[in-house]
């Protein structure tokens, strides 16, 4: 099966600055892939190239089988794009907003628009003014706008920033339904909370794609050591001691405790060293690796 997105050695330079540096990846039908990286890491530059809005300096890419160099019009007609910065007209209702944007894509079929509203869970709220809606609902409307022309591929740019876990969950349930229906989804984000929802996650830093795999595999392959949560007093002194401890790969302050990652050093060794140095140890618990640990380990 041809991949929905195929990227080979894709590169973009701005003068001396290499914004995207020879990246390679594939995305297949119905997948939900996250593209995780801080602002300025090359995420948006990649998406702009995939949409044919920006010419690559080197490399190749196809989207839905079309060449991003030569067939960008074909691509743009078939993909949906949802961004935080997307303009929803505050003084229009949900239905009016969707009708307006449908018109931009040449969609005037009322049934299609009604169906899209239903799909994103806004049925019954057709006449609500968008300025009266919560962030979570506005995000659903933005998704509806991106979906009205039935795209096969959907680009989501930090789709659930600024909402609480309940609203984020409700939004992602919609995304999973779309993927089940065969829509392919690429999510760019710098939030770990959002990346955790993706089936595969690519980690971008300084223009390079450092890894791409399922969250579970990333945690397993990148964080090969154990994670320990050490509750001790005084915390800062504990941090110094454990940072200098042979065999400890990383120690970080995490609010009221220390997070230690190590392959060789176990709970007892940590306990013994700290006690010997007169640090009061309250408890040491096993922790779970996070995508943040993965990012920090890869960025090193």
């Amino acid at each position: 099966m041809t991949p929905i997105i195929s990227v080979q050695n894709l590169t973009r330079k701005f003068g001396d600055f290499v914004a995207v540096d020879h990246i390679n990846f594939e995305v297949h039908k119905g997948e939900i892939v996250g593209y995780l990286g801080p602002n300025g890491s090359g995420k948006t530059t990649t998406i702009r190239m995939l949409l044919g809005l920006l010419k690559p300096s080197d490399g190749k890419a196809t989207v839905l089988g079309y060449d991003v160099f030569k067939q960008s019009e074909d691509i743009r007609a078939r993909v949906g794009y949802m961004s935080q910065k997307f303009a929803i007209y505050d003084d229009l209702t949900t239905l009016e907003n969707l009708t307006f944007y449908g018109g931009v894509y040449g969609i005037n079929d009322k049934a299609r628009i009604a169906h899209t509203l239903e799909l994103v869970g806004l049925k019954g709220h057709e006449s609500t003014l968008t300025r009266d809606m919560s962030t979570g609902w506005r995000q659903r409307l933005s998704l509806g706008i991106a979906l009205v022309h039935k795209p096969k591929l959907l680009f989501l740019d930090e789709p659930t920033s600024g909402v609480d876990p309940t609203a984020r969950r409700a939004f992602w349930d919609l995304i999973y339904e779309l993927a089940e229906g065969g829509v392919t989804i690429l999510v760019t984000t710098h939030y770990m909370d959002e990346a955790e929802y993706c089936e595969r996650v690519g980690v971008m830093r300084e223009g390079k794609l450092l890894a791409m795999d399922t969250p579970t595999n990333l945690k397993r392959t990148v964080i090969t050591g154990d994670v320990w949560e050490v509750f001790a007093h005084p915390l800062e002194r504990g941090l110094e001691i454990l940072s200098a401890m042979p065999g400890v790969e990383r120690v970080g302050l995490a609010g009221d405790h220390l997070r230690v990652i190590s392959q060789r050093v176990g709970k007892e060794a940590l306990q013994n060293l700290l006690s010997r140095k007169k640090i009061r140890v309250e408890k040491i618990e096993r922790g779970e690796p996070t995508l943040e640990d993965v990012f920090l380990a890869l960025a090193r």
Partner: peptide
């Protein structure tokens, strides 16, 4: 820490935690 990467965020938090920590800096 909206819009910053995990490495920077980690640095920022270390500063915040040091700030509230009762022990004087080493």
């Amino acid at each position: 820490t909206t819009g910053v990467d995990p490495v920077t965020r980690q640095d920022f938090w270390q500063l915040v935690i040091k700030l509230v920590s009762m022990s004087p800096s080493p």
